[in-house]
Structure formats: structure tokens, C-alpha cells
Design a protein around this nucleic acid. Structure first.
Lengths: 220, 220
DNA sequence: GGTGTACCGGATCGCCGATCCGGTACACCG
DNA sequence: CGGTGTACCGGATCGGCGATCCGGTACACC
């Protein structure tokens, strides 16, 4: 675009230093619009108006960028009020459900996040959500092995659910349905019942199973 | 580029020494010993005593290799006996537990598999295990939304659990524990209770929660 | 005016996935 | 037995990648 005049162009931000936060934010935006495969250090640098090598001043490897981007997603998950209060009995269930729902929603907003789940979730945002979960469940009466099992079950459920839903959306639905229907002899039950269901409802119902089972053991 | 996956394409005739099965088996071995990052078409070809370009006769892209390798892992999961029989009430619970345990074990034997979970699990081995799950749950009395929720909950639980355990093992335990303990002020409950637990027991206990909650709804 | 330090980027290295295109072995037909 | 098609193989190559080397530049502070 040579014809563009200076006056119509936003003035180039002088002295706008490249910060880690800007890099991460742009990485998230790039992942959102183009997906994980298209995230390269060169492309990311280009979007930031800089050279690719410059990024390595702020970051050691590309994996750092991915780790930070993943934790940024977790940062979008609001923490419910009253984390560990013993307010009314059963209040823990509402708070846990709220966290699980918000957590799932954040991951679905950034589908690439499910592909990054194999790697330690040790960022501050991930840890503080996990801490909230532990604290809430501990306040509900879970202790020892029950506490660990309850917390992990919920995490597994949320992340596993987001992964499955994302995956299904990626598979071009039509092709998959045709494929399944064409093999309904080999997979009769699956072909008959596995295709049409509402993800939101399935998630909520399964979460209900899990929480029901946990309630029996919690005592409160 | 996206549309069709390996499963939808007719399998190419193979008669010579290099077969698709050999490629997949070698890919699994390579992934087991060196991890996903080290799986390269060149390296894989070298292990097979051939040139890298030859692989592309049997396979369209590298993703095909990964899809096939993942399905090979699922093929290691034995199907419990009597998939859909209505034998004794509650028998479905034992069969579902058995499948879940074997499924988890297979994924833990091949830790790289958890990193491939974001992609359609449409291979024959994955589908037949899912079919078994659906059939068993349908035989237990689940229908409609309850069937979908029960089946998905269990899948999410198994895959999510394998992912979390694998991830934790990758993170050099010592570093992670130090990191958490150093921040016990920010994450008190997590630092106090989140470190020491037996994965097998945590898995079994959480699965118990889920199955308990499901039992209430199943009627049998 | 000098100097240290925080930041930037052109050039380059080794490796990757993928493709082009010319080969080779062998079944099958005349 | 000789020809021919088809299934299979791989050297050379292309564009792109993550990462590093090392020489620059702007600015705070003395």
C-alpha cells in the first residue's frame, strides 16, 4: 500500500517498548485467529512490528510463549466469591460449578488451549484457580485422599470436556457423521446415539453426576 | 487441506516390505523412546531403513502417522467380556471400570498419546472402544441425554486423568514441589495437600464418585 | 559529554515437512 | 520370452522453521 498518506496512518508509537505482556497478548490473538500451527516466532514478531530475534530477548524459547499464552487463558476465569467460607452447607457445590463452567468457557473461547494441556500448568493463574478449588473443597469437608480425588476429578472433567468438544468441532462434522453412519453396522449404538447432543447440557449433566457422587462422601 | 482424515481415505494396497503397519509400529516405538518432538519423517524413515520420501507413498502427511499411532495405542486396550449383556444388575459398573482402567493404563504406557488428544479419535480402535462404552451404558438403562452424558463423562475422565498424570511426571517433580512450597503463602491449601497422593488411588476414587453419581440415575 | 545497560534485528545455521521427478522390481499378458 | 503397466522407492530440492551470533541503537544517569 504505497498510496496511503502519512496523515491517515496512525502515528507509529515511538518508544513503545516491547514488553512480555504485549507479546503474550499478541500470541493469544494470533492463536485465536489462525490456530496453533500458524503461530511462529517470525509471524508473531511481524504482528508486533519487530524482528523475530527480538522476541528472544523477552523469552527463552517458543515454548515459553505457549506456556504464557495458556496461563493467560486461565487468567480469564473469574474466581467465584467467597472461596473458602463455610457459609451455608452445599454452597461449595455452587461455587465449584461456577468455577468449572467459567473454566470450560474460557478454554472453548480459545480452542487451541486444549492442545497445550500436556505441559505443567504452573502459571500463577492456573495455580490460583487450583488453589481456589482445593480451598473450597477442603472447606466442604474433603480431606486427605478424598480432597485430592475430588480436586483432580473436577480438573480432569473440565479439561477433558473442553478437549473433546474442541476436537469434535475441528473434525468437519459432515464427514465424521457420514463416516459413522456408513459404519453403523460396526458401531450401532454409537451411530444411533452418539451424534446429536447438546454440549452444554451434556457437560452440566456429567458434572452433576460427579458432584452427586462427591456429595455422598463429603458429609456437608 | 483440512477436510478428510486418514480414516476416510481408502487404505492403500500394500504388498512390499515396507507396510503401513510397520511404519506405525516403528513410529510408536520412536515416540516411546524419544518423545513427540523427536519424531521426524526423516528419523522414522532411517529407523525403517528407507528414505524419508518413501514414507509419503504410504502416508499423506505426518499427521497421518500421528493419527495412526494414537489409534494403535487404543488398540492395546482390551475390551471386557460381555459388552452389552444384561447379565446381573450392576455388572455394567464392573465392565466400565475395567475399560476405564485399561484405557488409562495404555495411555500411561505411551505418555506422548496425551499430547495427541486434540484431534478426532475416529480410528477403528478408538471407535470400537467408544462403541463398547455406549453399548454397555445403554444396556445399563441410560438413554438419550443421560447416555451421552455418561459416555462423555467417562471418556473425559479417563483422558483428562492420563493427561494430568503424564504432565506431572514430565515436570521435574523436585522443581515443581520446590516452586509450590516456596509459594505456600499464595497457595496454602494446594501446597499442603496437593503434592503427595497416589495416582492410582486418586483415579479409582474419582472414578468411584462419577460412577456413584451415575448409578443414582441409571435405575439398574 | 561520557558510559553503561537495556533493547533491537540482519545474517545465518541446521533441521524440518513436503514435493518433483526420475528410477527399479515384478506381476501379468501376448 | 519379451513387453508393459503398476506398485514402490529415493536423491535433490523448496520454502519455512526455531534458535543463535554479534553488531548496532536509544536513553538514563553520572
Amino acid at each position: 500500500m504505497a498510496g496511503e498518506s502519512v496523515w491517515l496512518r496512525p502515528r507509529r508509537q515511538e518508544r513503545q517498548t516491547l514488553t512480555l505482556d504485549r507479546i503474550v497478548a499478541e500470541a493469544v490473538a494470533l492463536l485465536d485467529t489462525e490456530g496453533e500451527a500458524r503461530l511462529t516466532m517470525r509471524r508473531l514478531a511481524e504482528r508486533l512490528g519487530t524482528g523475530s530475534t527480538t522476541l528472544y530477548w523477552h523469552v527463552k524459547t517458543k515454548d515459553d510463549v505457549l506456556d504464557l499464552a495458556l496461563d493467560a487463558v486461565f487468567g480469564e476465569v473469574p474466581l467465584p466469591d467467597g472461596p473458602s467460607g463455610l457459609s451455608e452447607p452445599g454452597g461449595w457445590r455452587a461455587r465449584v460449578s461456577e468455577l468449572a463452567g467459567a473454566w470450560r468457557a474460557a478454554m472453548l473461547r480459545h480452542p487451541w488451549s486444549t492442545g497445550l494441556l500436556d505441559r505443567p500448568m504452573m502459571g500463577p493463574n492456573a495455580l490460583s484457580r487450583t488453589e481456589f478449588l482445593y480451598a473450597t473443597l477442603a472447606g466442604a469437608g474433603f480431606t486427605g485422599p478424598d480432597l485430592a480425588a475430588a480436586a483432580f476429578s473436577l480438573s480432569m472433567y473440565v479439561t477433558g470436556s473442553a478437549t473433546m468438544q474442541t476436537r469434535e468441532r475441528d473434525a468437519t462434522d459432515a464427514a465424521m457423521r457420514d463416516h459413522l453412519r456408513a459404519r453403523h453396522a460396526a458401531y450401532p449404538t454409537l451411530a444411533a446415539h452418539g451424534l446429536d447432543h447438546d454440549w452444554d447440557e451434556t457437560f452440566a449433566r456429567g458434572l452433576g453426576y460427579l458432584l452427586d457422587g462427591m456429595t455422598t462422601r463429603s458429609g456437608r
